[in-house]
Each structure stands twice: as structure tokens, then as C-alpha cells.
């Protein structure tokens, strides 16, 4: 192996992502051994489909955390985008392009509003997003009365199913709307963060906000972009969630904020800003998904699922903190 590759592999081996990967591989091996169902294509596709909503939101939140902020208003943003978009689609008719354009527009605008409050009124992001969570959600339920929408346009309810193929006797697989959106979200977020100068500026700003200002970054614009991106992700996630649930339920999304936070921080993103990767977020999401799925496949009552999830979160964050502390003491002595 060339020297550079050895060095970068060495760096990867010390990274949070490496340990997460090991844990997941171990978990998968164990689950695959215990239950043949686990490592089937069917299960894989099901998992991807049901975790797409949390995954897309997690990618939006990842960008916000890297930039050094936090947002927890995204569930309310998603609820608003979902309700308004599909109401409009029901009333005036629409197609795939127009519903996504509307949802993205609404999500992006609400997200950008957060950035305006944070930057122009100089209020910490945690306060702003708690406030806007209540404002968006409160107004949505006030105006809609919290009524569910069960009738969706036929084409929307049917969804999409690409690259269909048969496997075994009577199971067929394909790329559905959820998987497609999740894959695109991962791709776009990865490109944004690693392949564009704006993405690198987001990392830089999260790492040292003062320096970013001094070097002449357009800090306000970057924040609009970051929180707007979170809103866009919320808009997209809201549509694929409605498609999967086959209904619009304005009250079920709010309250799931912390599931998303858990996935991102398990993936190694820091609340202090500047740290976090798309791969890490993918692994954090995978860990949660595999864990919850595995518990069900092992025949454990689903009532106990949160218990095990909580246990894994606690053990993994404790182990990470402990190993970091050990490394610090060792390097301090060296």
C-alpha cells in the first residue's frame, strides 16, 4: 500500500466511524446468525424504506450541527410542508415535480426564517428553534384543526417503483420513492459537504466562527443556506413519509425530533460544531435501524425496543467519551 493510503487508513482506524462500523458489523453478524430473516433483501429494503424519513432529516440536521448550530423545529416544518403541499395537490391537482417543488419551497422558507431570527436578532439557535417549533406547529393545528387527510391523489398514493425485479417465489423488489429520496439526499449532502467550497466553508464556520468572519465569509448567507437546507430536507422527508403512511397526519411528526438528534450524534457529529460526516450519520442511522429491527426479529416484545435503544445509546456515548478521555491523558503525558 502506498504511504498516503496507510496514513489515511490509520486515521480512519482511530475515527469514530470505524468503531461504529465494527459495532454494526458485529450486530449484523449476530443477528444474521440468530435469525435468517435478518440478512434478506426483503428486510434490507423494508428497513431502508421505513428509516428514510429519519435519515433525510438526519442529513439536514447534520449540516446544521456542522455549521455550529442546532435546529429542532424541523418536525414542525415537515408537518406544515406536508399538510400545505398535499392540500394544494388535492385541491388543484399536481404532479411529482410540483409537489416536491412546493414542499421544498415551504421547508426552505421556514428554515431560512430560523436563520434570520438567529443572525439578525442574535438569538441562540436552540432558543429560536424551540420557539419556531411551537409557532409553526401551533399555527398549523390552529388553522387545520388537526384533521387528518386520508384521500391523496392516486398517482401519489401509488408512488413509484423502479427497477423492479423478482427474487425467489413471489417477492419482488424495486426502488421506491423512499429509497430513491434517501439515496439522493445522501448523495447531495455528501457532494455539498465534501465537494463544494460552500460545504467546506460550513465546516470552517462551525470550527471557528470568529475566524470565518475575519476571513470574509458571507456568514449570514451561509446560515440561510444551512437552515434552509435543513428545511428543504424536512419538506422532502414530509412527502415521502405521507406517501408511506398513505395519509397526512399533522400531529404525528412533532415529538420525533430527538430520534433524529440521536441518529446524528450517534454518528459522531458534535454539538459544538465543525465535526460530523455523512458516513457517520449513515452509520448512526444504521445502528438505530438494525437495533430496532433486530429486537423485533429476535422475538423480543416491541414494548422493550426503546429500552435496548436507550441502552445502546448510553453505552456507545459513554464508551466514546471514555476512550477520548483516555487518549487525552495519554497524549498529555507523552
Amino acid at each position: 500500500m502506498p504511504k498516503a493510503h496507510v496514513a489515511s487508513f490509520g486515521r480512519f482506524r482511530r475515527s469514530h466511524e470505524f468503531w461504529l462500523l465494527l459495532v454494526i458489523l458485529g450486530l449484523c453478524a449476530g443477528l444474521g446468525f440468530a435469525n435468517a430473516q435478518f440478512l434478506t433483501l426483503q428486510n434490507l429494503f423494508d428497513l431502508l424504506t421505513s428509516y428514510a424519513f429519519v435519515g433525510i432529516l438526519a442529513l439536514g440536521l447534520l449540516v446544521v450541527l456542522i455549521a455550529g448550530g442546532i435546529d429542532i423545529s424541523f418536525t414542525a416544518t415537515a408537518s406544515v410542508a406536508q399538510y400545505v403541499t398535499l392540500s394544494l395537490a388535492n385541491a388543484y391537482g399536481a404532479n411529482w415535480i410540483s409537489v416536491f417543488a412546493i414542499a421544498i419551497g415551504i421547508g426552505g422558507a421556514l428554515g431560512a426564517l430560523n436563520a434570520v431570527f438567529i443572525q439578525k436578532l442574535r438569538i441562540p439557535s436552540i432558543i429560536v428553534s424551540i420557539a419556531t417549533l411551537n409557532i409553526f406547529y401551533g399555527l398549523l393545528i390552529f388553522f387545520t384543526g388537526g384533521k387528518y387527510i386520508y384521500s391523496l391523489p392516486d398517482w401519489f398514493a401509488t408512488g413509484i417503483f423502479w427497477f423492479e425485479f423478482e427474487w425467489g417465489k413471489d417477492s419482488s423488489y424495486g426502488v421506491n420513492l423512499q429509497i430513491l429520496a434517501l439515496a439522493l439526499a445522501f448523495l447531495v449532502t455528501w457532494l455539498l459537504l465534501n465537494r463544494t467550497n460552500i460545504g467546506r466553508q460550513i465546516y470552517a464556520m462551525g470550527g471557528n466562527a470568529d475566524a470565518a468572519q475575519r476571513l470574509g465569509f458571507h456568514v449570514f448567507g451561509l446560515n440561510i443556506l444551512v437552515y434552509g437546507y435543513m428545511g428543504v430536507m424536512a419538506g422532502i422527508a414530509s412527502l415521502i413519509q405521507a406517501q408511506l403512511a398513505q395519509s397526512v397526519a399533522p400531529t404525528v411528526l412533532v415529538g420525533k425530533e430527538l430520534d433524529v438528534v440521536a441518529a446524528v450524534v450517534l454518528g459522531g457529529a458534535s454539538l459544538m460544531g465543525g465535526v460530523g460526516t455523512v458516513l457517520g450519520t449513515f452509520l448512526g442511522l444504521t445502528l438505530l435501524a438494525v437495533l430496532q429491527n433486530g429486537i423485533i426479529l429476535l422475538g423480543v416484545s416491541s414494548y422493550w425496543s426503546p429500552f435496548f435503544v436507550g441502552l445502546v445509546i448510553l453505552i456507545s456515548v459513554s464508551a466514546t467519551a471514555w476512550s477520548q478521555r483516555e487518549r487525552r491523558t495519554r497524549s498529555a503525558r507523552a
Partner: peptide, 12 residues
């Protein structure tokens, strides 16, 4: 729910 929204507004 309007109360919730007003609470949020007051916080800001």
C-alpha cells in the same frame, strides 16, 4: 395550539 404558537412568539 394557538397558545403554543403565542408562547413561541413571546420567547423570540
Amino acid at each position: 395550539f394557538l397558545t403554543l404558537a403565542i408562547w413561541g412568539g413571546i420567547l423570540i
